[in-house]
Design a protein around this nucleic acid. Structure first.
Length: 877
RNA sequence: GGGUUCAUAGCUCAGUUGGUUAGAGCGCAUCCUUGACGUGGAUGAGGUCAGAGGUUCGAAUCCUCUUGAACCCACCA
């Protein structure tokens, strides 16, 4: 093989594009093309980025995580499938496009002005653009995903899965159409689920008042205008203050056209100590009040429901003609005025409260009753004697179907608790949206029923095609998370029973940000355990959020966003990946700034130069399959260190401790291999085999993190194989790191230190003497190394030294170099700290308890430390 | 109201099941064009691990409380 010709500095721009193309052409991103020995499947489904725009740093982090894991597993011989995709992201995308249209000044109300088909076309075009951009970006990140299996939540295959799933759940009675209160975004003119609410704090006024003079109970509210829709007052069953009124119905005049009919009911959920201890019940505009209403339906205690706020966010006729058409704010003001004028207002108090706003449209969400589609989470699944909630719980507690081996392991495990708590509070999931961008609800109504939606039981047909042409499809679309929930199996061909499904489901590993635990992780568990009777994945790794250097979120409004592609251009993708992965721990947010990328660019360049040195200096570039024998102490040391590195790296990767794996690799490569062994190799010579052996395996170990630079260097070995499918190195486990080498290192460092203190010019060779009472063999054997690395001319003796020189003591050796005052001073400081150290150790060992109770090896260890320190100081005095 | 996480060198962060004289990077100081690398090399300064108690022979690590920061959840009437 010819000698290497490599540039003095690594330039990622020159190589990355080419390397990615090489990989794509080789076909190993597709598991079907992997060499036959890759048998055990390992699947990771990429969380599909929303087609709302370009990828940000968070996506870069996810790609780095997934690809590092995928490459590690592939190198370990797994049949790896990393399946890429994008998400149509229903509301998010439509909201974005509408916003763009309005901001561009072309439209003021895109839905009205364009109509359904035309608007959908605009959104589709936007989404397609965004998709191709995203795919380019994923490739830039080096992600080794199978482009043959590229999926989109809104493509035909996935739509079929969604329809099938919907029908299956409908037939099982788990999806129903019903009239219930929902969260309504007036701006978006659509429902949203509880999880799509973002709570923001604001100050509000709490009003304490009576409906009328002759009504005996005082209530409180921050939304007095909704009280026009009250139909009951709830009190605690054993509250003596109100017991006499329970069961009675009052007709109260609230100054509106129609008087209210208020029934006093008793309910144990009422907190006697909160507020006035009595709760004005507004079934139409509060989730909890609705439950009070629903649980009494059909009983003697039944209460009514009056909707006073409409879909337009204004008061309805039911609020009375004086109020109808007013905005809620205006109605509130008017009603409070009335209360004040009639002396009914007892108290006004400023409080801070959390209000739910729509995460996509931003407006405060109104609770209104409507006919919508829901997933019933508390209903028994036919033939399984379990509810969807039960399935959700089982997956992380007892294991699916009580099987401990079918358990989703969450890293870090604290998210288990958060997840379970979420299940406890979970209500039926509203899945219908009134936006247009999304999977159309596969339900059909006969022509005559189309306008009378509030009828309790309209005729419904659920399926792909209507029973007759005259039937009309439901106008609504599905919550985007309904399709995302099926992602782990819709991507593998379900509902068809494909080979992919058999091979790769349940998937092995999934990573996501903690904000998606409820939205997505939970929904995937729900869908998969329900539809496939399988877990969606065995392991979930939850990563934190990336923040800027000040700890703020990256956001458009703060304009603090950093484009990952720009960083990739400037520093290389490998450096970007490292900067994202090192220094993070599962579940915790981390700060990101450009200096990190710069540091890793430097590290990669260092690695490049290590390879360059080795490849340019060996007589022949060749692969060394087996560990070469050690000729010297240094050889023995580096081989043992390398063996340990393999063990550590493997373990850390397998435990998802990416940061630790990276730190170990970094430390070995720079601080051990480059700083010591290569420098020694220049003195000892003839180390071609060991250097090549280590380089080759080290390329493999780094490859999951830094695929581009490692594959580029690998080309110098001139094999026709690719690095990405080499075998992960195995360890010998039998090698111990020789402590004697550490002594040589310490001697060298000590001599360098002494030189620096003596102000000896770095290039100048100075005389030094080493004396020892023990054998001089170790020092003699490594004399050349010490002389070269410490730049000294060495005299070795086993006789006490008598000259006019200053000493420092390391292990059993006394080191002497020519005396200067600065060295004396430095030596005094060392002596002082050594004395403190000895004192601490003596105290510890004098403690009988310690000697009695601590494990023997710890005591011996401490004793040894003391002896060493004492000997050292004895020689210094 | 309930819950979670975090607090370690000037800055950003590691520190796996309690046993190191507590580590790294950046920054800082002194010095070095020794032909792999100045995107480099050598050496060094800098920390009572937020505070107070406790458990233990032994705590940055476990427990309790306090202080400060961030976040999640909830039917705050």
């Amino acid at each position: 093989m010819s000698k290497a010709e490599l540039a003095t500095a690594y330039n990622p721009q020159e190589h990355e594009q080419l390397i990615y193309t090489t990989w794509e052409q080789a076909g190993f991103f597709n598991p079907d093309n992997l060499p036959l020995e890759h048998t055990e499947p390992f699947a990771i489904m990429m969380p599909p980025p929303n087609v709302t725009g370009v990828l940000h740093l968070g996506h870069a982090l996810e790609n780095a995580l997934m690809d590092t894991m995928a490459r590690f597993q592939r190198l370990r011989g797994k049949k790896v499938l990393l399946l890429p995709g994008t998400d149509h992201a229903a509301v998010a995308t439509q909201a974005r496009v509408e916003k763009n249209l309005i901001e561009s000044g072309k439209h003021t109300n895109p839905r009205q002005e364009l109509g359904r088909e035309k608007l959908l076309e605009v959104i589709r075009e936007y989404a397609e653009n965004s998709k191709s951009h995203i795919i380019t970006q994923i490739k830039r990140m080096g992600t080794s995903c199978d482009w043959d299996r590229l999926a989109y939540t809104f493509d035909e295959q996935r739509s079929q899965a969604v329809t099938t799933l919907f029908k299956k759940m409908y037939d099982d009675g788990l999806i129903y159409r019903g009239y219930r209160v929902v969260n309504w975004s007036v701006t978006g003119q659509s429902t949203c689920s509880d999880d799509e609410l973002e709570y923001t704090e604001r100050t509000a006024k709490m009003y304490t008042f009576k409906y009328s003079k002759d009504f005996p109970i005082t209530i409180a509210s921050t939304r007095p205008e909704t009280k026009l829709g009250d139909t009951a007052v709830a009190v605690h069953p054993s509250d003596p203050r109100y017991q006499q009124y329970v069961g009675k119905t009052f007709t109260v005049d609230v100054g509106a056209q129609k008087p209210l009919t208020i029934k006093v009911i008793a309910d144990p959920h009422v907190d006697r100590l909160l507020g006035t201890g009595a709760l004005g019940v507004t079934p139409a505009h509060s989730h909890i009040d609705y439950e009070l209403y629903e649980s009494r339906k059909g009983t003697a205690d039944e209460i009514a429901l009056t909707q006073v706020i409409g879909e337009d966010g204004c008061m309805t006729e039911a609020a009375g003609s004086e109020y109808a058409g007013l905005t809620v704010e205006a109605a509130r003001e008017k009603f409070v005025h009335y209360l004040r004028d009639n002396d009914l207002l007892e108290q006004e108090e400023e409080i801070t409260q959390n209000v739910g706003t729509s995460d996509r449209f931003g407006d405060i969400v109104e609770v209104v009753p409507m006919t919508q589609w829901f997933v019933a989470v508390n209903k028994d699944i036919p033939g399984r004697n379990k509810t969807l909630k039960d399935l959700l719980r089982e997956a992380v507690t007892t294991g699916h179907k009580g099987d401990n081996n079918q358990k989703v392991a969450i890293t870090p495990d604290r998210f288990e608790k958060i997840y379970l708590h979420w299940i406890d509070n979970l209500r039926d999931w509203c899945i219908s949206r009134q936006i247009w961008w999304g999977h159309r609800i596969p339900a059909w109504y006969p022509p005559q029923n189309s306008s009378t939606q509030t009828d309790s039981q309209p005729e419904i047909y659920v399926g792909t095609q209507p029973p007759a042409d005259t039937w009309k499809q439901d106008a609504d679309t599905l919550d985007t998370w309904f399709s995302s929930g099926a992602w782990t199996f819709s991507t593998l061909g379900w509902p068809a029973q494909t080979k992919d499904l058999t091979d790769f489901h349940p998937t092995q590993w999934m990573q996501m940000g903690h904000e998606l635990v409820f939205f997505w992780m939970a929904r995937m568990i729900l869908m998969s355990t329900y539809a496939l009777d399988q877990l969606p994945f065995h392991n979930v790794y939850i990563h934190g959020l990336l923040r800027d250097e000040h700890g703020r979120k990256f956001s458009k409004s703060l304009k603090n966003g950093i484009d990952p592609i720009e960083l990739s251009d400037k520093y290389g993708t490998d450096a970007l990946r490292m900067s994202l992965l090192i220094g993070i721990s599962p579940g915790n947010d981390s700060k990101f700034y450009e200096e990190k990328v710069e540091h890793w660019r430097n590290t990669i360049n260092k690695f490049w130069n290590i390879a360059r040195y080795i490849l340019m200096n060996v007589t022949e570039i060749k692969r060394i399959p087996n560990q070469p024998p050690a000729q010297t102490l240094a050889d023995e040391w580096i081989l043992a260190e390398f063996d340990q590195l393999i063990t550590d790296t493997t373990e850390h990767f397998a435990n998802y401790q990416f940061s630790l794996a990276g730190e170990k690799l970094y430390e070995f490569t720079w601080s051990k291999l480059a700083d010591w062994y290569i420098e020694i190799a220049k003195v000892e010579k003839n180390k071609d085999e060991i250097l090549l052996f280590i380089l080759e395996k080290l390329l493999i170990l780094w490859h999951p993190f830094t695929p581009f630079v490692t594959e580029t260097i690998w080309k110098q070995f001139e094999t026709n194989e690719l690095l990405m499918v080499q075998a992960w190195p195995s360890t010998m486990h039998s090698q111990t790191i020789p402590a004697t080498f550490t002594k040589i290192q310490t001697i060298i460092t000590s001599l360098r230190n002494a030189r620096a203190q003596a102000k000896a010019p770095p290039g100048k060779v100075i005389p030094a003497t080493i004396t020892t009472q023990d054998s001089t063999e170790l020092v003699t054997n490594n004399q050349a190394i010490i002389e070269q690395l410490a730049r000294v001319n060495l005299t070795i003796s086993n006789q006490p030294y008598t000259g006019q020189h200053i000493s420092c003591i390391e292990h059993d050796y006394e080191l002497y170099i020519p005396v200067t005052d600065t060295v004396k001073q430095a030596l005094d400081t060392v002596k002082q700290s050594l004395q403190n150290y000895i004192a601490a150790l003596e105290k510890k060992l004098a403690n009988e308890q310690f000697v009695a109770k601590a494990p023997k090896e710890v005591v011996t260890q401490e004793q040894q430390k003391l002896t060493e320190a004492q000997e050292k100081i004895a020689k210094m005095v």
